[in-house]
């Protein structure tokens, strides 16, 4: 590379050959192999799964370590920065589509399949089913086949509302941290980043408690028919994304503490922040569509 004389930023840095991608694919092989077996009751499946996950975690760590080194070593030009911005945006777009599938399922069941199953056309098959949403309405069978134990639905008060507050305030603390970083107040940035991470963590704990409450007090389970399926899959995938986002923010915070990022160059920070805001917005959708309506 003619421009990559030592010390200067190359026009567009192309990394050296790297074993991480293939290694990670190999790790994922053990993950899917194990998951596919375990789910079918094969004992060794879980060990393959854990092994694969650990493997992936190690490779991920090494991979990111390399990337961070390159970034801090000044190899990333403005162009690369822009590439990261584009890629993060479109990645988040694809995540939106993923959630879209589950929101669609919720809408379809509420607006279409449950009413239809309780409608006159299908009365030949399910004479006793009323087709109300949520399917737990008292006095009717909770499902057409009457295969579901009675349950209560999750109301917005108070756990989900607390969680909304937690997530919204984490958005605020994150923004404060970002402004502080831009003004080069490192201490303040780090403090508010920790606050954000902790708010995310508390959110996860509250959600864990909410699930406990659902299972134990409300008898609301994954097996609670249309309501339970959509409730747990939507909130569950969201919770998983909170976890991922929180881990991203955590690593960004640790990097900040190591002195990474500058006031005007910190895409790692911004990317994680975008992701966090995306998770936030999905939550608002959930809060309205799952808990309120």
């Amino acid at each position: 590379m003619s421009t990559s004389a030592h010390g200067t930023t190359p026009y567009y840095y192309v990394p050296q050959p790297s074993r991480h991608p293939a290694m990670m694919a190999l790790g994922l092989f053990f993950v899917i192999l194990g998951a596919g077996q375990w789910i079918n009751g094969v004992e060794w499946g879980q060990w393959s799964l854990y092994f694969g996950l650990a493997w992936v975690a190690v490779v991920l760590f090494q991979w990111f370590r390399d990337a961070v080194r390159e970034s801090e070593g000044g190899l990333y030009s403005r162009k690369i920065d822009l590439s990261y911005r584009w890629s993060m945006s479109w990645f988040i777009f694809s995540e939106v589509m993923f959630f879209g599938a589950f929101f669609t399922a919720l809408w379809w069941m509420r607006a279409h399949s449950v009413p239809a199953l309780g409608g006159i056309d299908n009365a030949v098959l399910w004479p006793d089913f009323k087709g109300l949403w949520p399917t737990a309405a008292p006095g009717v069978t909770a499902s057409p086949g009457n295969i579901i134990e009675p349950f209560q639905t999750m109301t917005p008060f108070w756990l989900p509302t607390i969680n909304t507050a937690l997530l919204l305030s984490s958005g605020v603390t994150l923004t404060i941290a970002h402004h502080a970083l831009r003004e080069n107040h490192r201490g303040k940035t780090i403090a508010f980043m920790w606050a954000t991470v902790i708010l995310g963590l508390v959110f996860l704990f509250v959600q864990g408690y909410e699930y406990y409450h659902a299972y134990v007090d409300l008898n609301l389970k994954l097996t609670s028919g249309a309501y339970g399926s959509t409730f747990f899959l939507l909130t569950g995938f969201h919770g998983f994304h909170v976890l991922v986002g929180m881990l991203m923010l955590l690593f960004i915070t640790l990097r900040l503490m190591k002195g990474h990022f500058t006031a005007d160059r910190h895409f790692g920070f911004e990317g994680a922040a975008w992701y966090w805001h995306f998770v936030d917005v999905v939550w608002l959708g959930l809060y309205v569509l799952v808990y309120w309506l």
């Binding site: 399922a105 379809w108 069941m109 279409h112 399949s113 449950v114 239809a116 199953l117 399917t135 499902s143 057409p144 086949g145 295969i147 579901i148 389970k221 994954l222 097996t223 028919g225 249309a226 309501y227 339970g228 399926s229 959509t230 747990f232 899959l233």
Partner: peptide, 13 residues
């Protein structure tokens, strides 16, 4: 895991 997205007996389709 016992969800009923595609199982009409549980409200799915």
């Amino acid at each position: 895991f016992g969800t009923t997205f595609f199982n009409p007996a549980g409200g799915g389709d």
